[in-house]
């Protein structure tokens, strides 16, 4: 019964007890990355996602995983293995996500996880990049009449345990000398139904997930109000294990390649027309010139594959987030007043 919640931790313990698995030394013939080698041997990239959050990762009616997090997994798969079809989505919860990555159950984690010092310092994991700059928000029922977070003294708040959200709410209430009662339910749909049934006055998590959840309520969305207050910074990032720096590079630069492509106007539909481009940045990006792929231990066409099969960052956003009615805001390119800024690919 305890397994119900702690399977990830159990796997980690088994690995730590029995594994001889120090960080594997770089092998002579391999790519220098144990994780990359493993995905190639397996022919599959295991990507930890939630699988429950619309806009981030949720299977559509055909059973295809859709969302920003899911596409991030696909992009890395295209870069590492050349074919997006080789991705395998592994469902993880807010509680077992870190142990799943630590124990090697997944090769990377792309599930709306906030980049914090504690997580990088204590978990033996690190963040490769941020795919969504977010913040903690509150969703309330319109009928409650609440219009600002500060009106919620004494409120009961539904929140997932083990998240940075629960810590952010604590800080907010402490700072404002107010009190709240938490209802902590691990299973997302149980938690949401507790909110909808009125067990809680508010449901709190990353504002992005609140917006997409509200949107997914269809006609009933009008009964729910997303409060304007954003009470914390939640940069949601992609995580890998520490100790495999080459793999870290692959994941990080795949993301940067997508941002670069957006900066340069290269999309999945027009990428082939750029093969004759004279822009040195684009030529390096698409592997026509230079050996950036080799530096990462990848095919020269790695970024081409990513753009062709998944698209640039803007396309990924428009495909998954825009339909949910969430504006791009600070997630826009730096040239358009946002925070996404690609370091030079050279």
């Amino acid at each position: 019964m305890i397994r119900y919640v702690t399977s990830g931790a159990m796997a980690l313990i088994a690995g730590m007890l029995l594994g001889s698995g120090f960080v594997q030394p770089a092998s002579a013939q391999g790519t220098g990355s144990a994780t990359l080698d493993a995905t190639r041997t397996r022919g599959q990239l295991l990507c930890g996602t939630s699988g429950q959050v619309p806009g981030f990762s949720l299977p559509d009616s055909q059973g295809v995983m859709r969302g920003l997090d899911a596409d991030t997994c696909r992009a890395v798969t295209a870069a590492a293995l050349g074919d997006v079809a080789k991705v395998k989505f592994v469902p993880t919860t807010t509680q077992n996500r870190f142990t799943a990555l630590q124990s090697g159950e997944v090769d990377m984690l792309s599930r709306s996880t906030t980049w914090t010092l504690g997580r990088e310092g204590n978990l033996g994991l690190m963040f490769a990049w941020v795919n969504y700059y977010d913040g903690t928000g509150f969703l309330v029922k319109k009928s409650s009449g609440v219009t600002a977070a500060k009106q919620m003294d004494g409120a009961t708040i539904c929140v997932q345990p083990g998240t940075s959200t629960e810590l952010a709410i604590n800080d907010f209430y402490r700072q404002n000398n107010m009190k709240f009662t938490p209802i902590l339910i691990q299973d997302l749909s149980e938690l949401q139904s507790a909110f909808l049934s009125g067990r809680c006055d508010a449901y709190s998590t990353d504002a992005s997930a609140l917006a997409t959840f509200r949107f997914s309520q269809g006609p009933k969305a009008a009964d729910l109000v997303l409060l304007p207050d954003i009470i914390s910074k939640e940069p949601l990032g992609v995580m890998v294990r520490k100790g495999d720096d080459k793999w870290f590079d692959v994941v990080r630069w795949t993301f940067i390649a997508m941002v670069t492509a957006e900066e340069k106007g290269v999309t999945s539909s027009n990428v082939d027309s750029f093969m004759t481009s004279t822009d040195p940045d684009i030529r390096r990006l698409l592997g026509i010139e230079g050996d950036l792929g080799k530096a990462l231990g990848l095919d020269p066409k790695w970024a081409y594959n990513v753009i062709k099969q998944v698209g640039n960052f803007g396309e990924m956003w428009d495909r998954n987030i825009t339909p949910m009615g969430v504006p791009r805001g600070i997630n826009n390119l730096w040239t358009k007043g946002g925070l996404q800024y690609a370091p030079p690919m050279r």
């Binding site: 919640v5 870190f98 504690g118 149980e190």
Partner: peptide, 25 residues
């Protein structure tokens, strides 16, 4: 210990949150 499923904070629930926040599984 099935309490976690319905949000009652028993030892499993609190230890789980603790191990998740501290990373000490």
């Amino acid at each position: 210990s099935l309490a976690v499923a319905i949000g009652y904070q028993d030892i499993v629930s609190i230890a789980n949150t603790t191990l998740n926040q501290t990373g000490q599984a």
